[in-house]
Every structure is written in structure tokens, then in C-alpha cells.
Simulated scan of single mutants.
Amino acid sequence: MSNSKIRVVQVVGQMNGGGVESTIMSHFRFIDRDRFHFDFVANVDSTHIPYDEIAELGGTVHTVHPYRSFSRYNQDCVRLFEELRPTIVHANVNALSVFPLHAAKQAHVPIRIAHSHSTASPKEVSKTVVKDLLRPCSRMFPTHLAACGELSARWLFGNTAVNNGRVKLIRNAVDLERFSDDEGLRRRIREELGVGDAFVIGQIGRLCYQKNQEFSLRVFAELLKIHTNAVLVLVGGGSEREQLEQEARSLGVFDKVKFLGIRKDVPALYNAFDVMVFPSHYEGLPVSLIEAQACGCPSLVSDVVTKEVQIVPGMIESLPLNAGAAMWAKALLSLGLRTRDARSAGGRFLKNAGYDIRDSSKDLGDWYETLIHDIAK
């Protein structure tokens, strides 16, 4: 690495092919890599670290013990930060950022950024208890605060920090040239998936409680009662796959559900969907909903999803989960049957709202340099 480059450590926690990693990698692809060197710090129990791409782009990957082995995690991080001597440690692990930033402070890293990407759910009791215990500590060790949206910022850092302008908004931007409405791509992928002229409902995200695929299966079972020629496509890996497959069998819909696992052709899949279902229990500002809008794919989301994500007019509608599976099924069908002629203007709206990755990456690099200039005064 050239000594003239600014060294930035991106702490990403457990890399499992989720939206947060996707956003960080997108910024890495488009940031000025002549100015910045990125080191990625991931937990050793990660299942989906893109070693080859990170190396190809000039970055490096370091693995550390998981948080549950706190003393070993802290030792790993302190040793790593002292060895790398970065100018910036950018922690992307929400309330857990307190751990790597504590280590960064011990290692005398001058710029320590806590980045909030999510919120919490009271139904995820053990996780939420931990998050609530850590939230008051969220401002102890960072020198600067960042978030993907206002809801995530207020949840982790509090209203005062947001109202005083202390939180930098870093959009979950996407490559708008890669994510766009493409009728030819739609036909090809639908043929590959073997869905013919079926009504295709998609969901992209980790198979876990937060993303609530169990509810999606119940909604799909109701939808089949009113529209028999339909398919549900679930994209993503996760610990609940076996449980969800069993649920699909018990609902009698397994033969019409496609579990695709983690995919690299996500833009093509959005084009193949007629509508996306997004019944999350809690969220920050989901990158998949930005991507879907760029591809002209309408989405039905739960009402816990921040309204900040509704950028392209008519592309996102929300319902509370307690409206029930039958109501969700009717709303999905109505939303998805809208003419595709209205789905091609997403890129313009998203660029104007700051979601073009080229613009966002430049803004991130400029912010880093401003922080460095400020501490040099």
C-alpha cells in the first residue's frame, strides 16, 4: 500500500451476504482508491466474505473472534489497529460498534466513526436487550456519527444528536447503471427460473426473524386462493431456511416456492419480479428497496420500514403486519398488476435523492478528507 493513501478500516462484523455489506462494498467499488485504502475487519464465523473482489480492488480482509468472546475480540482489534495504524476506523455494526471503537480508542486511532444501519424489535427479546444496554454507550468512543437514514440515526444516537446536525447521512446508494428496468433481461431470467407467465412475488434478504419470510409464506398461501398462477421467490441465505421449507410444505405451497440462496445476479431478479414483498419486523433503510425502485419493481412493505425509503412515486406501499395475510395478498396482487409502463423513471428520482453510488462514494471520500483536515488544525 502506498504511504500516501488514507487508510480506512471498515468494521463489518459477521459478513453473510446482507444489505449492510452490500452498501459498504458498493462504496468501495466507486470510491477513489488512489486516495483511500480499505481494510475490512470481519468476524471469523462469517459465511460470505468476498475475498477475491476485495483483493482485486486493492483492499485487505482481516478476521477476528466474534463479539461473544469479548476479551479475545478486543485483543484482536487492538492488536490489528496498532499494526495497521489507520487514520479512520469506520464501524458498521450498529449498537455493537461500541466494541471495535473502544479498541480503536485504545489503539489511539484519531477518527472513529459509529454508523447506524438498523433499529430493533421488542419481539427479538435477547437481541433487543443487548442493543438497549449498549445504546447509551453509542456516543462514548466515536469521534463522529453516521447513519443510513434519520430513523436509524435517532434510534441509536438520540434526537439531540440528530437535531444538532451531528449525524452524517450516508445513503444506501446503488449503481443506478446496473439496477434499471430491462424488459429483455426480465424475459431471459423468467425463462431461466422456469416461471413462464406466472405472477412472481420476490423477497430478497437474509432468511431470519427480522426479514419475516414466515409471514411471506402465509401471504403467498392466501394469494394462491385468488390467483393460482403465482410463484414466490426467496433470495438469500440464513439460519431459517430449513424451518421455512418445512413451513412451505405445511402450508401446501412448497412446489411453488423457489429458494435461490445467495445470488450475484440480483438486478436481473428484480426485473423478473412482478412485485416484492417486504414484511420486516424492524429495519433501518433497506438497500434492497432502493435497488427495487431503480429496477422498476414495486414493493409492499411493513409499516415499520421508514418512509424515507419511498422515493419513486407509486413504487412502495405499506401495510401493518396485523392487517393479516389475506389483506397483504390482495394488496400485493393489486400493486403487482399495475402496468410496467409506469416503472421506468426510477433512476432519475433516485439520483436526485442522493442514491447514485458514484455521487455517494465521492461524498464519502470528501467527508473522510474533511474529518482529517479538521483534526490536523
Rank of each mutant, 00 (worst) to 15 (best):
M1H: 14
S4M: 04
V9F: 07
V11H: 08
G13I: 06
G18P: 02
H27P: 01
R33I: 08
F36V: 01
F38K: 11
F40D: 04
A42C: 12
A55Y: 02
V64H: 08
S69K: 15
S69D: 12
F70P: 00
S71H: 06
Q75D: 14
Q75A: 15
Q75M: 11
E83N: 14
I88S: 01
A91H: 01
N94R: 06
S97W: 09
S97H: 09
I111H: 00
P122C: 12
V130E: 03
R135K: 15
R139W: 00
F141I: 07
T143Y: 12
H144C: 12
T160V: 14
N163W: 08
G165R: 06
A173C: 03
F179I: 01
F179L: 05
D181N: 11
R188P: 04
E191I: 04
E192N: 13
L193I: 09
V195W: 05
V195Q: 04
I201W: 12
G205P: 02
G205Q: 09
C208G: 13
Y209N: 11
K211C: 08
I226R: 12
H227G: 09
V233D: 06
V235D: 08
R241S: 10
S250A: 11
K256S: 14
L260A: 08
G261T: 09
R263E: 02
V266T: 12
F273H: 14
P286E: 14
E291H: 03
Q293Y: 00
Q293G: 11
G296L: 00
C297Q: 02
P298K: 07
T306R: 02
G314P: 05
P320H: 10
A329P: 07
A331F: 00
A331Q: 15
L333K: 11
D341I: 07
A345N: 15
A345L: 03
L350N: 04
L350Q: 09
A353C: 06
A353S: 13
Y355W: 09
R358L: 15
K362V: 13
W367C: 12
I375R: 13
